[in-house]
Design a protein around this nucleic acid. Structure first.
Lengths: 212, 212
DNA sequence: CACAGAACTGACACGCGTGTCATCCGTGCG
DNA sequence: CGCACGGATGACACGCGTGTCAGTTCTGTG
């Protein structure tokens, strides 16, 4: 006995993941996948309908896991402050997405532009995320713990910020201390970073050279 | 005389833009473009090397325009506060990108995953943007007008937030008052939105129903 | 050890979309 | 009026990658 069906399936799946992450959906050929997995072309089609199907399975799994990862923030939890709960959520999301970088790269960049119906699926998933976040922001605004303003916009700003950083980390090989990352993001959402008022900075400390 | 060469070229280019924005790079076929432009297949190849070339031209133009749009922030300008200069930059970027939504959609979503060398080009462009922003953030930190923290990270958070909002606007048809948008983004970068400290919210104002 | 059934193989056919090119058109000039 | 030339046309050939399937090997069972 060599391999149980599930194992072979998993083997193909995980090599496909690597190939998709490396080459992107359109550039990745079935031949690349089977070569990486060390099986013949025909074997691939024994386990998966077609290229699109295996890709979809990878993305769907990740979407599902990401969905499970997010915790509802309860502002009335007497044990944990809202700040801690938000921090914890960021930590969980970052942790989950950095755990399997290949898959994250696929979700955040290769899954775009596969085909129109796939695009709709993605849009609707990220839209769902945004709705969730928007709801939480609205709740927070009613409680006075989130600044006033268009909640949907804030949701997108937040998602975009998170998304970009994670994308940069998984797409290039950037290494970051995970806990520092979480704290920096939290600080960003909490207080932004511009410490300016609306008056010009008056003087220059040391002039390099006076105008000639 | 029907059309000058430049006009015909422009005509194909602008219809190609619409088609790419609507269908995405891989789904858009040359036949779609020529049909939209109302010319024959052969005519297309009289004006453009191939599909990749016309797409690249669209993206390159947009990249160039975007590059021109960004102004260097001078913290010692006695006429305009840093806050105003930052606001102005956001306004210009948002304005420029919302001016031609089809092209913006192409830049922000369809240009990903075209092919490996195109991906590198895009990465390097956005990387360049990030460097610029990172530099400005560093300057600001030295002047004490930007909060301490990893400047590169802050740059990515900022870019991602901007990017996502603009993408949502151009991808779905969301309408926003442009000036409100700018102000909301500025407020977000300036102060974030979480108004929480690290202690739990103690009491609930009005309980909907007591636990049954 | 023989045999059946399952798992695997890779050469092949097919479809799709690209880019070409022989031919056609229309405009302006002699 | 006719000729020449740049521009436009679209049927076609070609290449590439997918999915299939007839044949082979492997496995475990009587």
């Amino acid at each position: 006995m060599t391999k149980a069906k599930v194992e072979r399936r998993q083997q193909i799946l995980s090599h496909a993941r690597d190939v998709f992450a490396k080459r992107g959906y359109h550039t990745a050929k079935i031949d690349d996948i089977v070569a990486a997995a060390g099986v013949a072309r025909g074997t691939f089609y024994l386990y998966f309908e077609d290229k699109r199907a295996i890709f979809e399975e990878i993305v769907d799994r990740t979407i599902a896991r990401l969905g499970m990862t997010i915790l509802r923030v309860d502002p009335h939890d007497s044990a944990r402050s809202v700040a801690d709960q938000v921090r914890e959520n960021i930590r969980r999301i970052v942790g989950m997405l950095l755990e399997d970088r290949a898959t994250t790269k696929i979700l955040l960049s290769d899954a775009v532009g596969v085909d129109p119906s796939f695009d709709r699926k993605l849009q609707s998933f990220f839209g769902e995320m945004a709705n969730l976040l928007e709801g939480s922001i609205r709740d927070g605004q009613e409680l006075g713990i989130i600044a006033k303003g268009d909640a949907r916009l804030l949701a997108f700003l937040t998602m975009g910020a998170l998304r970009e950083v994670l994308f940069q980390i998984v797409a290039r090989g950037a290494e970051y201390d995970q806990e520092k990352l979480v704290e920096a993001m939290f600080a960003f959402f909490r207080s932004g970073y511009l410490r300016v008022d609306d008056v010009p900075v008056p003087a220059r400390k040391n002039t390099r050279a006076r105008a000639r």
